[in-house]
Computed example of a mutant assay.
Amino acid sequence: MTESSSTASVPCVAAHHEPSWREGLKTGMPSLFGIGAWGLVVGIAMIKSGLTIPQALGMTLVVFAGSAQLAALPLIAADAPIWVIFATALVVNLRFVIFSALLAPHFSHLPWRQRLMLGYVAGDMTVALFLQKYPSEAPQVGKLSYLKGLLYPNWASWQIGSIAGIFLGSTVPPEWGLSFAGTLAIICVMIPLMIGRPALCGVLVAGAISVLAAGLPYKLGLLLAVLVGMLTAMLIEETAEKWRSKRG
């Protein structure tokens, strides 16, 4: 058997490599409760923002992105123009373009429909855990099963929590301060991502811009803060790379 034929056979074996699937499930298990709790908060927030139950169910199943949903909900409640809502959600979710680029070399051999499905169920923590396990792009038995063991339970946990929140939303007292709970949920997800100087500076700049631009109509201050924060982080990262290359 040649090296190329051996490599080509790896995906077929990986697709049925059950130990890898169970390993992925075990690795992602500690985060499932938190993901479900965050989904519960977002589900309740959708109902509290004025969405009907069918609309909220459609949003959680189609969008599957808590940060984008929480960013879009105040705009929907404020009757903001549709382009503002879509632009805000798009900018907030631009990090998934980076995630897809990081996963692409590992799974470029798969059919596009399968890659599209994996991209739909991918999340921040699951992609990070996969890349921690498989930093190399070289084909390995069990890669795909390990990724599925991370992604599918994560997706199910979110949907169960979110759907429960949707149906419970009308019964939860407003004095529980769910908007503050949603803010805490976002912070809990954001803190692990603030590793390194570029990300930290980007968050600090985005926070400052969001405060200074809070008075802009249609919550455009949020969109501006995200854009400026991302550009700041990219600029600092690029500057640091140039400085390291000169030193090297």
Rank of each mutant, 00 (worst) to 15 (best):
residue 7 T to V: 15
residue 8 A to G: 05
residue 17 H to T: 07
residue 18 E to R: 14
residue 19 P to I: 08
residue 20 S to M: 13
residue 27 T to F: 12
residue 33 F to W: 03
residue 35 I to D: 00
residue 38 W to M: 15
residue 38 W to A: 15
residue 48 K to L: 07
residue 49 S to Y: 03
residue 49 S to T: 07
residue 53 I to M: 04
residue 58 G to I: 08
residue 60 T to I: 12
residue 61 L to F: 13
residue 63 V to F: 09
residue 66 G to E: 04
residue 67 S to D: 07
residue 68 A to C: 01
residue 73 L to D: 01
residue 82 I to F: 11
residue 83 W to M: 09
residue 90 L to G: 09
residue 92 V to R: 00
residue 96 F to G: 11
residue 98 I to T: 11
residue 98 I to D: 04
residue 101 A to Q: 11
residue 103 L to V: 02
residue 107 F to E: 00
residue 120 Y to E: 07
residue 124 D to V: 06
residue 125 M to E: 15
residue 125 M to I: 12
residue 126 T to N: 01
residue 129 L to Q: 04
residue 137 E to H: 08
residue 138 A to E: 10
residue 139 P to T: 12
residue 148 K to I: 14
residue 150 L to C: 01
residue 153 P to G: 09
residue 154 N to S: 14
residue 154 N to H: 08
residue 157 S to K: 00
residue 158 W to Q: 09
residue 158 W to C: 08
residue 161 G to L: 07
residue 162 S to C: 13
residue 163 I to F: 02
residue 163 I to Q: 03
residue 167 F to I: 05
residue 173 P to R: 10
residue 180 F to E: 07
residue 188 C to P: 00
residue 190 M to N: 04
residue 193 L to E: 13
residue 207 G to Q: 00
residue 207 G to M: 00
residue 210 S to K: 02
residue 215 G to E: 09
residue 218 Y to N: 13
residue 239 T to M: 09
residue 240 A to C: 13
residue 243 W to E: 05
residue 244 R to M: 05
residue 246 K to A: 15
